[in-house]
Design a protein around this nucleic acid. Structure first.
Length: 861
RNA sequence: GCCGGGAUGGCGAAAUGGGAGACGCGAUGGAUUCAAAAUCCAUUGUCCGCAAGGGCGUGCGGGUUCGAAUCCCGCUCCCGGCACCA
């Protein structure tokens, strides 16, 4: 399998020595695609054909192995899954990233802008099942299509670092990392409830189940109890929450999503003793201050203790029936808050540790086995669920918290009071205010050994087992006498077998059908044994691929820490918000484990993250199943890559969703294509001026000022990723240039200065047109390795501004003034205006606010 | 229910507390043309007005301020996250 891509041009790139000490590379001496003395039409196709391959062949975008620490820019876009061609969402995301990369490169940074493919996953396998296609072949064909579109778009990737996650040279290191996780107790196997997708025939992680349905295919999931591999992400829950603060470049929204997902809550564990049983049972509560109101105790129906408590009693049969009933409910029904809560009294009693009261033990369907300890203390007066359950089962409701301005009465309550208040009916704690109550009760529990402060999380361990073929084999051997045995590092990679049945009956992985592969010997004792047949969740690949880019050809280790630490932490990560709880939590978890292993230095991998908006159609995400995918081919053919890129960049800010217009690619023909034509005509017009033109005068000085102002604001816009306004500023400049020509201006020097700077400013967004014009103007080397234009502050500064005069907050007069105007002069000019005098109506202003040089605000009675 | 984000012309969108609507699309008019396309130029928030000019206007209602799309309070609607989570 390793040989599969030896023929690929992408893998042919060989890493060379760092080029750091060399002066700025300019690239091979490129020539324009045609040199003509006459004005020529804009032939985008000829230009694309002329430069596309030479940019790649010349390795123009190759980054040094080790960057200058002061000048490094590591930019990554979430790598694509290759199911078919690129679609407009990809085009937008990559165009944004590419514009940033090219801008930073021109500003002299060592830019690393890598690409790879997230190449494992279900669609390849489904193609194998449905059409008998080899998943490897299917995947690589799609990658080739992807790559061709990316090349045509002219994306400035460092192609020498490309890899595919389905390549054993990559997934070997998934296995290596798995074994290290295993050694550290972070990878373990347990029998647990898991969501099973009957359509995809695999278990899913919690994150992949949305409202009881499979995140991929939408099928309703069912619960099963297989033995599965997990990563112990819960060990890192606190760090994953706390370190969110280190991600200064994250939106509040994204941090909120992750915080909600991890769901940390503070409270106390309280030990309840059970009548007739030695061991107490612990519950978690966020409200220990309501303990005196706990009038019953509830276990989840699946809780093993429930069965134990009723063993040998007549209730045992009823419990079995009740469990059956609960099990038959679909997950969607069970989590519905509308459904009345059902339960069963176990005829056993627990003791409330704060007042030694005897309280009945129930099981109820509203208590979940997999949150907290699967057991709760029920405080009906102060918890809505407990309240409803108590009312329908005739259980006691006792008020122990009084709200500030009311007095609760248990019999009169129509709903629970779950808010803060003063403690009552709580022995010695009566009168304790809400601000102290939780801490005081927790302290009491601790001193009396009946409980302790505790934290709880919504986050579960990450289920990584998948019963599918097209993924990384888990490197474990099962031996009857030694148990789970790690495959020795030296035997990695465990490659996927070729001879499998992709559509096995039952629930086993297709790998189980490759008998020669499965049957092996125990690495420890040598006895016959069998391989683990589950493969890894593909999110394992994406949890560290961004580190592999930094040392992609290493076959001794996943990466060299020196190289990784030279480039990390990443300077800019971009991708859709859709990965907020899966990829972005898993990758942060990996980073922290790798940090604990001493392999990386940064606690957070992506401190700056740009959440690009999605390209939608009719407000819906583009997806194969919806059949609303727009691929770039038609746009390439009709208007070219530059027009397409510019169109998407001009549509709005990068974070914003963009709804693809109903008229399709024709929109490009109305918006950016005509403007690129205009830019081309301007440039050709200037290039073919056959004389120096009139000497510099007022018009020329104004045009040069406009240029320098434009460079200033466009640079600022690029820094803020505000591409739409950068384009607007350039459009204004082009309009100015046309006006200058229309007014008879013909100075070649000024026009050339303008056009060359314009080409540079436009180069990150429209790389082909600008490259061609750059060479038509006689420059050597690529424009994309030239330096960003600079501006003269004095020239960029305005020397005339429009002063506005307000009377009682309304603009009543505008006056042209020099920027150097003094406050006194401004007052003088404003008050002497005929119009303003009319508004003042003979009165003296009671107040005058002056903000030089733009504003005079007068207040009159 | 808790939490986060948003609402600006016919449309995509601009606007360090200081001229609301830059730039573009669309529309209208003009130049060019035998004609059209393309191109170039101009107008284009809305209402009153021949005009000069003026009134109104950034989801709704208040407030702070000389001055609010922008800050504060209270709503409405939309989008998103979590949700029988103890």
């Amino acid at each position: 399998m390793a040989e599969a891509r030896e023929d690929s041009p992408l893998l042919s790139g060989v890493c060379r020595a760092p080029v750091l000490e060399l002066p700025r590379r300019i690239g091979r001496l490129l020539r324009p695609f045609r040199v003509a003395s006459m004005k020529e039409p804009y032939d985008f196709k000829a230009i694309e054909d002329h430069y596309k391959q030479s940019w790649i062949d010349d390795e123009l975008w190759k980054a040094p192995e080790i960057p200058d620490p002061e000048l490094k820019r590591y930019l990554v876009t979430m790598f694509p899954y290759p199911s078919g061609d690129l679609h407009m969402g990809h085009v937008e995301i990559f165009s944004i990233q590419d514009a940033i990369a090219r801008f930073e490169r021109m500003r002299g940074y060592d830019v690393l802008n890598p690409i790879g493919w997230d190449a494992f996953g279900l669609p390849a396998e489904n193609a194998a099942i449905r059409r008998g296609v080899d998943p490897k072949k299917w995947t690589y064909e799609n990658i080739d299509m992807h790559r061709a579109s990316m090349e045509r778009l002219g994306l400035s990737f460092d192609w020498t670092r490309v890899f595919y996650t389905c390549d054993p040279r990559f997934y070997k290191w998934n296995q290596w990392l798995f074994l290290h996780f295993f050694e550290r107790g972070l990878a373990y196997r347990k029998q647990a409830a898991a969501w099973w997708c009957p359509n995809d025939k695999t278990v899913l992680a919690n994150e992949q189940v949305i409202a009881g349905r499979c995140e991929r295919c939408g099928a309703e999931v069912v619960k099963r109890y297989p033995t599965q591999w997990f990563f112990k992400i819960t060990d890192y829950a606190d760090r994953l929450v706390d370190d969110l603060e280190l991600n200064k470049g994250w939106t509040e929204r994204l941090k909120m999503i992750q915080r909600n997902w991890i769901g940390r809550s503070y409270g106390a564990e309280v030990d309840f003793s059970i009548e007739g049983r030695d061991e107490p049972v612990t519950v978690f509560t966020t409200r220990p201050d309501t303990l005196w109101g706990a009038t019953f105790f509830v276990l989840a129906p699946e809780h093993p203790l429930a069965e134990e408590l009723v063993a040998g009693s007549p209730v045992a049969e009823k419990l079995a029936e009740f469990k059956d009933e609960v099990a038959r409910l679909s997950e969607i029904d069970r989590t519905s808050t509308e459904r009345p809560k059902k339960g069963l009294f176990l005829e056993r009693y627990a003791t409330n540790p704060v007042n030694d009261e005897r309280i009945p033990i129930w099981v109820a369907d509203y208590v979940l086995m997999d949150y907290g300890t699967g057991a709760i203390m029920a405080v009906p007066a102060h918890d809505q669920r407990d309240f409803e359950f108590a009312r329908s089962n005739g259980l006691e409701i006792r008020v122990v918290i009084q709200p500030p301005h009311a007095s609760l009465d248990a019999d009169g309550m129509t709903e629970a009071y779950p808010h803060d208040g003063v403690m009552v009916n709580s022995n010695g704690f009566d009168g304790t205010p809400a601000t102290e109550s939780v801490a005081k009760v927790t302290e009491w529990l601790e001193t009396n050994h009946r409980g302790r402060a505790a934290k709880n999380y919504r986050l579960r361990d990450w289920l990584i087992s998948r019963q599918r073929y097209w993924g990384t084999p888990i490197p474990i051997v099962h031996c009857d006498s030694c148990g789970e045995v790690a495959v020795p590092y030296g035997e990695l990679p465990i490659e996927l077998p070729e001879d499998v049945d992709f559509n096995p009956t039952g629930e086993a992985s297709p790998l189980a059908t490759a008998e020669d592969w499965v049957n092996t010997t125990c690495p420890k004792c040598g006895a016959t044994a069998h391989r683990e047949t589950d493969t890894m969740d593909t999110f394992v690949d994406s949890s560290w691929y961004f580190l592999r880019y930094l040392d992609p050809h290493n076959d001794e280790a996943p990466f060299d820490p020196d190289k990784v630490n030279a480039w990390m932490a990443m300077d800019q990560y971009s991708g859709g918000i859709t990965h907020a709880v899966m990829h972005l939590i898993y990758a942060r978890f990996f980073q922290k484990v790798l940090m604990d292993m001493g392999m990386v230095e940064d606690p957070e991998p992506f401190p700056r993250l740009l959440n690009q908006g999605m390209v939608t159609m009719g407000g819906k995400v583009m997806s194969k199943t919806r059949g609303n995918i727009v691929e770039p081919l038609e746009a390439f053919d009709r208007y070219g890559a530059d027009a397409l890129r510019l169109y998407l960049l001009f549509s709005g800010p990068p974070e914003q969703d963009f709804d693809w217009p109903p008229e399709g690619v024709e929109a490009i023909g109305r918006v950016t294509w005509p403007w690129l034509q205009r830019v081309w005509r301007l440039s050709e017009d200037v290039r073919t001026l056959d004389h120096d033109g009139a000497p510099e005068g007022v018009l020329e000085a104004e045009l040069r000022k406009a240029l320098h102002r434009t460079i200033k604001v466009v640079t600022r816009d690029y820094e803020a990723f505000s591409f739409n306004t950068a384009i607007a500023r350039m459009q204004e400049l082009v309009n100015e240039a046309f006006r200058y020509r229309g007014a008879g201006g013909s100075n070649k020097a000024v026009m050339t200065e303008l056009v060359e700077a314009l080409m540079k400013m436009l180069a990150p967004m429209a790389p082909y047109l600008t490259e061609e014009q750059w060479h038509r103007f006689g420059h050597e080397g690529s424009i994309h390795l030239s330096s960003w234009p600079t501006f003269d502050e004095d020239l960029a500064a305005q020397n005339e501004v429009t002063m506005i005069v307000q009377v009682n907050g309304k603009v009543r007069e505008t006056i042209g003034v020099p920027v150097s105007i003094t406050e006194d002069e401004m007052r003088e000019r404003a008050l002497s205006s005929e119009k303003i005098r009319g508004y003042l109506n003979g009165k003296e202003p009671t107040k005058v606010i002056i903000k030089p040089p733009k504003l005079v605000s007068l207040v009159v009675e």
